Computed example of a mutant assay.
Amino acid sequence: MPSSPPPPKASPPSFSAQEFRSALGMFATGVTIVTARTATGELVGLTANSFNSVSLNPPLVLWSLARAAGSMPALSTGSHYAINILAADQKALAERFATKGVKRWAGVEFSEGVAGAPLLAGAAATFECFNRSRYEEGDHVIFVGEVERCHHAAGASPLLFHGGRFYTEHAL
């Protein structure tokens, strides 16, 4: 029986990592803080702008996290997490949860969500997710969450990120 030819592979990139990062920065995104609780009750949270919808039925969302992230063990093994879409006035919170070596949770107001995942006060929207599946790709892990509960603040303006800077929305 003849063997089939090997599948095609991508060509090596013709650009630097910095060029790739700059090009990605041209895509404006919302800003989220992904939150969870470890098995021992410790709070976990990090800023992420890699959030996207996947499916309406069942309700699925995705986000990604660097494999080397310190919160990877808690988020990859826990049953639940919350994705908090930040409001325009939460820039300082986004910066704090993106900074290493700071007390991220000091003075942060939140309520308990599914399985203890923190829901940040003042968020434009929250998605309480069951940790449905994970896919390892490159230097990141893609998390797919099945949304068990969601809420949004009607009329809230989201915090946006573009080209390495924060913005607020303005209708055209």
Rank of each mutant, 00 (worst) to 15 (best):
S3E: 15
S4P: 15
P7A: 09
P12L: 05
S16R: 01
S16W: 01
S16A: 03
G25K: 07
F27G: 01
A28H: 00
V34H: 07
G41Q: 05
V44I: 10
L46C: 09
S50H: 10
N57S: 13
L60Y: 08
V61F: 01
A66V: 08
A66S: 13
A68M: 15
A69W: 07
S71N: 13
T77I: 08
A82M: 10
N84F: 09
N84S: 07
I85C: 09
A87N: 01
A88K: 07
D89I: 04
Q90C: 11
Q90T: 05
A92D: 15
E95G: 02
K100M: 12
K100Q: 15
G101M: 09
G101Q: 04
R104M: 11
R104G: 13
W105Q: 03
F110N: 04
S111F: 05
S111P: 04
E112F: 11
E112C: 06
G116V: 04
L120E: 00
G122P: 02
A123I: 13
A125E: 05
F130E: 06
N131Q: 10
S133D: 10
Y135N: 13
Y135H: 15
E136G: 13
E136N: 09
D139P: 00
I142N: 01
G145N: 02
R149A: 15
H151N: 06
A153C: 09
A154H: 00
S157W: 06
F161Q: 04
F161P: 09
G163R: 06
Y167S: 12
Y167V: 11
